[in-house]
Design a protein around this nucleic acid. Structure first.
Lengths: 110, 110
DNA sequence: CCGCATCCCTTCCGATACTG
DNA sequence: CAGTATCGGAAGGGATGCGG
């Protein structure tokens, strides 16, 4: 019951753990609001099931906002919240490292 | 076989995914080299099994160096490599966010 | 188009007990 | 002290097929 007083970073990292969570935020940050299908294509390798799950998680953490336009066919757009932007903004340096360590992003706009 | 050409950030995030991985790096960064027991106490809530597993992973990624002094009792010290320092250095801003969102670290030195 | 449902597998995690 | 061994459970993930 008495929650162990943990470092806030420990709490945050637990919440956003998982292979895809942060990457989805990053894609939303660098590409702006995206529809489900766009997201699925840009987050290479992810399945619709997992993408849905992760988006729901990000919604519940108020990092992403879901806008549903009930047209036919439906249009659903995902946008970073202010919180989400703050968080994805911290990934810039991680991206730089990744490029140095693993090579240039084939999709990067030079 | 033909590896899908992914964004390097996607690769990196996959490698370091998991609830504890980055947090261990952070603890090693802010506290300097640590022995196994120190680490276990500072990474609150982790079990010895998982801590061992994650340290082995970090070793294999060359983010952490393991120094084993075969005394009795043995002394094993874990230290960030240059790579590890680079990576943990990118967590500063994430830590700031975490503090703002979830409150001040009870262990923080003010 | 945007999912949800299902099945199944792997990884990650947690607790406990034990050893050199 | 620094792990290993074992077990069980939870979460994350992948593939496929169906539905509003």
């Amino acid at each position: 019951m008495t929650e162990t007083q943990s470092c806030p970073l420990e709490i945050l990292l637990k919440q956003i753990s998982g292979q895809w969570t942060l990457y989805i935020l990053w894609v939303l940050d660098t590409n702006g609001s995206q529809r489900f299908g766009e997201l699925r294509r840009k987050v290479e390798g992810i399945s619709t099931k997992v993408l849905t799950e992760r988006l729901r998680l990000l919604e519940s953490l108020e990092l992403v906002h879901r806008h549903h336009e009930p047209t036919i066919p439906p249009q659903v757009t995902y946008t970073l919240t202010e919180r989400g932007k703050e968080l994805s903004g911290t990934l810039d340096r991680l991206y730089e490292l990744a490029v140095r360590w693993y090579g240039t992003d084939p999709k990067a706009v030079v």
